[in-house]
Computed example of a mutant assay.
Amino acid sequence: MALIFPRLARNFIKNGYFPTDEATLGRIIGALDIAGDDLRIFDPCCGEGCALHALKGALVGCGAAVQALGVEFDADRAWHAKALLDVVIHSDIQDVVVSPRTMGVLFLNPPYGDAVADRAHTGDRAKAERLEKIFFRRSIASLAYGGILVLIVPYHVLDDEFASSIARNFDRVRFFMAPEQHFRQCVVFGVRRRSARPEPAISSLLRAAGKGDFLDRVLPETWPEEPYLVPEVMTGEVFRFHAVRIDAAQLAAEVQRLYAHSLWPQFGIHFGGGEAEHRPPLQAMGRWHLALALAAGQAQGVVTSASGRVLLIKGDTYKDKVRTVELGENPDGTANETVILTDRFVPVIRAIDFTPGPSLGSVVTIQ
């Protein structure tokens, strides 16, 4: 299987990034098949996007319509992936919202190594957590029940905790060493099931694999078992895949992608009303009409009186209360006083005098 990305990846290698190699990816693809016509696949650390692009191409070749989604933290790799995949978000995976149980394949080849330990509160040298486990926990909820996990990590990461997490959430788990052994990688397949107690046999298998008991079990060139079937995505439900925060470049790209043929060509129609010339009213406006115009922000701009006086005006309206007092007499002959407060809207126009002369620049209030 000829892939383009091994050559391209050399341009992106930094921050501990190394893509899935050609031999491993080709054998992974050989283990998958389709179980529907409408599929969705996801890579939460997609790099330059070539691996998921190749997987999509293989599933499309089987006769399915496939949507490939990715997340990538590095800007250069993310923008390269945007040209290959359907939707790619340049963001930290922690800042991405993904609807749960909506992906048919979770292709997870996360960064390798330790995260930075948080010692702000204790001051001790507590062991930092592995990045592989962080990415696994953050992205597993996106995989549908019956969906396929493809996990590519160094085999020694599979400790008791990681093995139990996989055994609790997946059936039909298979472990293989990758053909490429630069990072001593392994490939773990699984079919997601509803979370329950860990399956003892699966836990034992993965713990032994993490200790190096199956280093000779290499991913075969030809898949010997029934293929893993990628399930069809559920339709009719609200699907969310977006970042909590988005930068200006991605926002501009999304606007261009989503609204290039709908909203923006009609921008003048929707937002050009303010440029139209205002027609005078049919009759002279009363004080109530003036108050409404001021409250709506229509009384503003530069006006010129018949005498040539030029004012820059800005109108506003505030609510005042009018106090009236009514005097009366009670049945017993005593006097009473009733105070009535009535709301009144008062229009106010403030202006700067632009008329050349001694009043230039003065502030005028019309009330």
Rank of each mutant, 00 (worst) to 15 (best):
D332M: 06
G210A: 06
Y318M: 05
S203E: 10
A306C: 08
A351I: 02
M1Q: 12
S99A: 07
P200T: 13
V87K: 12
G308T: 05
M234D: 10
K314M: 07
R184T: 03
A209V: 03
A293S: 11
P347W: 02
R197D: 11
N15S: 11
H242T: 12
F175K: 11
L84C: 04
S99K: 04
R174T: 05
V233W: 01
A253C: 08
I34K: 14
A81V: 12
L263T: 15
G273N: 10
H80M: 04
L360A: 14
A296S: 15
A81M: 02
N11R: 15
A201S: 15
E72F: 03
V363Q: 08
E161N: 13
A293L: 13
I29L: 05
K127T: 12
L311W: 09
V98G: 05
A252G: 05
N336W: 01
V363K: 13
S139V: 09
C45V: 15
Y318K: 14
H80T: 14
P100D: 03
A253Q: 11
G268D: 06
S195R: 14
N15Q: 12
T338S: 08
T222H: 09
R287S: 10
S204R: 15
M285T: 05
K133L: 12
I202S: 14
H261Q: 12
